[in-house]
Computed example of a mutant assay.
Amino acid sequence: MSETASQSRARLRRSARLAAVQALYQMELTGAGASEVTRQFRAHHFGHAGEPGEYIEADEDFFEDLLAGMVKAQDEVDAGIRETLKSGWRLSRLDATLRAILRAGGYELLVRTDVPVGTVINEYVDIANAFYDGPEPGFINASLENFARKVRPGEVRTAQ
C-alpha cells in the first residue's frame, strides 16, 4: 500500500523536527548561527532520490522555519519553558538535548498554530524517546503540555 500525501507530509515533517533538534544542539555546542547550520544540513544531511550517500528525506522548508523561527523567538520560548520547570530549576541545568527538544517544541506551540497541540507534543515525545530510555520523555510531555496551556489554552485537553 502506497503512502498518502498526508502520510508523506507527516513523515517529512517528522524528519525535519528531528533534524531541527539536532541542529539546535549543534548550534548550542558550536556557536554556529541558524543560516550556517541550515546550509550544512541542506548540503550534507538532506538528500533526494538518486543521490549517493546516506541522506535523510525531510521537509527542508519546515526544518528551516523551525530553526530560524526558534532563534528569533528564543527569548519568548525560553521564558515560557522556564515557567514549566520546578521552582529552583534553571533551563541551563537541563542537558543540551533536552533544551533543544523543548525549544523546538516550544517554538511550534508558540508560533506554528497550523500544527495541532497534540501533534506537536507527540512528535517531540517521540524524539525524546529516540534519545532517552529514562524519565525524560515524560518530562518533555509534561513541560510541553504546560507550555501549551499557556500559549494555546483553548486547544489543550485537561485530564479527567
Rank of each mutant, 00 (worst) to 15 (best):
M1N: 13
S2E: 13
S2C: 11
E3D: 12
T4G: 07
T4W: 00
A5C: 09
A5Y: 02
A5Q: 10
S8I: 09
S8E: 11
R9K: 12
R9I: 01
R11A: 10
R13M: 05
S15W: 07
A16I: 01
A16H: 09
V21S: 09
V21D: 03
V21R: 06
A23K: 06
L24A: 02
L24Q: 03
Q26W: 05
Q26D: 05
Q26A: 08
M27W: 07
T30L: 03
G31T: 05
A32N: 03
A32D: 01
A34M: 02
V37K: 00
R39S: 14
R39L: 03
R39I: 10
Q40D: 15
Q40Y: 14
A43S: 13
H44M: 03
H45V: 12
H45S: 04
F46K: 05
G47R: 13
G47D: 07
G50Y: 04
E51C: 12
E51Q: 15
G53A: 15
G53K: 13
E54Y: 10
E54Q: 13
E57L: 07
A58D: 00
E60K: 01
E60D: 00
F62C: 02
F62M: 02
F63P: 08
E64R: 00
E64Y: 02
L66H: 01
L66C: 15
L67K: 06
L67S: 10
L67F: 08
A68W: 01
D75A: 15
D75C: 04
E76G: 06
V77P: 04
V77T: 11
V77E: 02
D78P: 00
D78Y: 07
A79C: 00
A79N: 12
G80M: 06
I81W: 04
R82H: 11
R82N: 08
E83R: 12
E83V: 00
T84G: 07
L85K: 01
K86I: 07
S87M: 05
G88P: 10
R90F: 01
L91N: 12
S92T: 07
S92D: 12
A96R: 07
T97E: 11
A100M: 04
I101C: 05
I101Q: 12
R103N: 09
R103G: 10
R103D: 02
G105W: 07
G105C: 09
G106D: 01
Y107D: 07
Y107C: 02
Y107Q: 09
E108M: 12
E108H: 05
L109G: 05
L109C: 08
L110N: 00
V111C: 06
R112G: 04
R112E: 11
D114L: 02
P116N: 11
P116M: 12
P116I: 08
V120N: 08
I121V: 15
N122K: 12
E123G: 09
E123W: 01
D126S: 14
D126L: 08
N129G: 15
F131P: 00
Y132R: 04
D133Y: 14
P135E: 09
E136F: 08
E136W: 11
G138E: 13
G138F: 11
G138Y: 11
G138N: 13
I140D: 02
N141V: 03
N141Q: 12
A142C: 04
S143Y: 04
S143C: 12
N146C: 14
R149W: 06
K150E: 10
K150H: 10
V151A: 09
R152F: 00
R152E: 01
P153D: 07
G154I: 01
V156M: 13
R157M: 03
T158G: 10
A159D: 14
A159V: 14
Q160V: 04
Q160K: 11
Q160Y: 04
